[in-house]
Amino acid sequence: MIQFYNVSKVYDNGVKAVSDLTLHIKKGEFVFLVGASGAGKSTLIKLIFREELPTRGQVMFNGKNIIRMKNREVPHMRRKIGMVFQDFRLLSQKTAAENVAFALEITGTSGKEIKRIVPEVLEQVGLKDKGNLLPNQMSGGEQQRVCIARAIVNNPLLIIADEPTGNLDPGTSWEIMKLFQDINRRGTTILMATHDSEIVDNMKKRVIALSNGCVVRDEESGVYRCEL
């Protein structure tokens, strides 16, 4: 589903965030991306999403070369990917339900469909009765659930989460992780960058460790292992 071929990314300021990286992620996998701060995790994610273009190398997603992709194809590619962020990135003037509905409006879904789908998805993430709340009326965990609901509402092939539990307490983090596990069981591929060693060690999933923009470890049922 995701292939990186000899990808390097040098930012305009000369920082080499990813260097000569080759990587494959198959459909249905659950992958943790770990590594010290500045190792290049977020950059790698941005490359998949085409928020940044690589300086060298090719990136494939869902059988398509996203580097050679035309600009106008990018939005349609992005709709197949659900994004979850550490800082949630919810629209602050829209309620939870409206934030989720918004992702559907972008794809031109009818109002009737939206009214049907949104409550279902909100229930799935455990926010059945909180649809009318604004982001600032919700706890961090609840906001992250809204963010996840928004990410899955268009039935994406892939969910990318950049430190989704970075701002949450351990209990809440586990609840969020259970949600991700559910979503993964239904067949959605998940790629998650995280610093949470407890979660990585307990979930026993594939772990890709980055250091200075290179893959230094890639193992099934891996652990976080802070010192590299």
Binding site: E51, P75, L90
Partner: peptide
């Protein structure tokens, strides 16, 4: 920025 991340076209 959020709209673009959700896959909104420039037109949208």
């Amino acid at each position: 920025g959020i709209m673009k991340i959700l896959g909104a076209t420039n037109w949208f």
